[in-house]
Design a binder for these strands. Sequence first.
DNA 1: CTGAAAGCGCTTACAG
DNA 2: CTGAAAGCGCTTACAG
Lengths: 390, 390
Amino acid sequence: MTRPRIPRQSDIARLAGVSQATVSMVLNDRAADNRIPESTQQRIREAMAELGYVPNIAAQSLRGGRSGLIGVHTFERVFPTAPDDYYREFLNGIEEQAVNSGLDLVLFASTQKPDGTRSIYGSGSNRMRLADGAIILGFEKNDDEIRRLSDEGFPFVFIGRREVAGLDIPFVTADYAAAMGPVVQTLVDAGHRNVTYLAAPLRALAQQERLEGFEAAIASAGQILSHRVEVRPESAVTADVDQILSHRVEVRPESAVTADVDQILSHRVEVRPESAVTAEWVNDVRRGGSTAIVVETFDLARALAAALADAGLVAPRDLSVISLDADPSGGGAFSHVRVPRRAMGRRAVELLLAVIDGADAPTLTEPVHCEPPATDTVGAPAPAALASSA
Amino acid sequence: MTRPRIPRQSDIARLAGVSQATVSMVLNDRAADNRIPESTQQRIREAMAELGYVPNIAAQSLRGGRSGLIGVHTFERVFPTAPDDYYREFLNGIEEQAVNSGLDLVLFASTQKPDGTRSIYGSGSNRMRLADGAIILGFEKNDDEIRRLSDEGFPFVFIGRREVAGLDIPFVTADYAAAMGPVVQTLVDAGHRNVTYLAAPLRALAQQERLEGFEAAIASAGQILSHRVEVRPESAVTADVDQILSHRVEVRPESAVTADVDQILSHRVEVRPESAVTAEWVNDVRRGGSTAIVVETFDLARALAAALADAGLVAPRDLSVISLDADPSGGGAFSHVRVPRRAMGRRAVELLLAVIDGADAPTLTEPVHCEPPATDTVGAPAPAALASSA
DNA sequence: CTGAAAGCGCTTACAG
DNA sequence: CTGAAAGCGCTTACAG
């Protein structure tokens, strides 16, 4: 089967008896500007239909500059292997907004290096420039690459707060700090005065925001509250993260613990292994006087749910729990704050489009609102946790 | 911040003191053919690195070269909203192989029309031509668009068997028919003689293959087996699907049912509403003499698991069950055949690459092997199902 | 009102 | 061994 040649503007022009440029005008609705008579336009449109004309995108974007392609770059796989992937909802939102804006998405798979990590310049050249701009996701720190990208003037935005010294990086983030207000208020209103904050190892600035927001909320709640901060490290912790971590440890030193109970605010940072969210740990928390747990991530929440079950405890009867993130599976055992990932994905596309159009990016960075938690697993403080579960 | 101009080949040429054409040669590994001395090549490569040169894809593909872009087109959303999405594993495989081949992926979101459906030509132009070729996924029948794509000579492959009259469409499929052998053998070996095949509404040719493979396997098992085929329609059933359905009904008419039990092979097609996989239905199946159920899809399997629980039944104690598809969540209540979606995704990229290179596509179409089921939920036939559960 | 022409950045014969 | 030139299909001033 010989491949029939694809019609181009000049074919239409010939058929309609006009010049190729005129065809282009009609096609781009510039006909009015150039006062092309309706009858001519009609003839051209008929010719287009007859020949099944379709513009050649490559030519259009070569000529016009824009490719209509938005890049998506992650420093990890784009398509999640696990069904409960963290990125999924972001990508949903990105796709949604891309559809709205008539844009296509390029997933940069070619940027993956042999060792499995992804690097923008690893292959020597920045394939990203193929797109009009890019949305970057992921925890990995790649300051050098980000800086270079920025130096090149390539438009990009981050999902998740990103800070690189000397650069104004546009990013989309959720208003984590503000979301902590209702969380704390909910607990305080229910009568809790001693709350444990169970945190994942620090990988992202958002986590710091949450924790600081939590602490600020407690302070402004003006209640006599004591809370412990549990940080659960993973083997994935990098040197950079450790710095953040030790910074936090410094701010809230272990020595502050003793005076704990009677202070208005006190903190405690514990570093424990991943498997440390156990029935025993939960019992320890209760024995320590906490009547509620605020759990940072959905996977920690899962571990906590299992630990509660193991300990024969039920929320909120024995312990109130609020998760700061919904379980992507749609289930999730606890009342939770909803991080608006979908909306963040959509916003990232909008922001990127603005950046591409030369907008002053950082002024557009406004956090997306988080929905406050339901109160299903928040109740009155359980009477003093007496027994061990052994 | 003024955006620095993006370097092009002529910039490199100037810096390296050669002509722009020479840069192009080196870039495309045509240097050897043209006996460009290594020293010159070196100089050019250094200049490219210094300027951070990246080819302009639009220009390359306008010129007729490759863009290194593989399109992915679905007639539905690409990024699944539900965590247990059917496409996910295909996409995993596609991404995996794209990485291996140093290709990037374009997700055609711009093809979505206002009504939410996606159409290649709906927006007037075939944006797909931006990519070197495309992988198409999805159930939707779009014969006209497929035909047009083919007429244009655009390279594409399908995941899932696709047949359009007069066209040789390359597709990747799993060897469903062959997979049915072990399924039937497993059941027969365990002593089952009466099996119900619970099918989803027919949307894809693969389903037909499975069912026919199942029947062929039963025939060749040479056992006295009777089985019923249950077809569960959804509201999504289209006119086309109905045709397939009624075809099947015709082949296995209701009237063949009565002589059922003593015949070597008999069939029964039942059309029932979606919610029909209930405890009551399971009991009916057992009362009807079936000691095993072969369930076609993971969502039907979920419904069946719930129905069994409702009926207070346990597999394989009361009923043996084999699912013909693994649950994407990774769980799944029953022994199942593993449809090798990941491998199919990988294969699709390989096949597409071959098609782009002008290979004779259909000869490459060889089904991917399915892993046989485990036997956890297959046991000896339960003693005659006596009581109802009411 | 319409057409001729330049040029987007590349690749590929072709001519030296 | 290297360069000049054509041309991929388009858009956009610009000149009539």
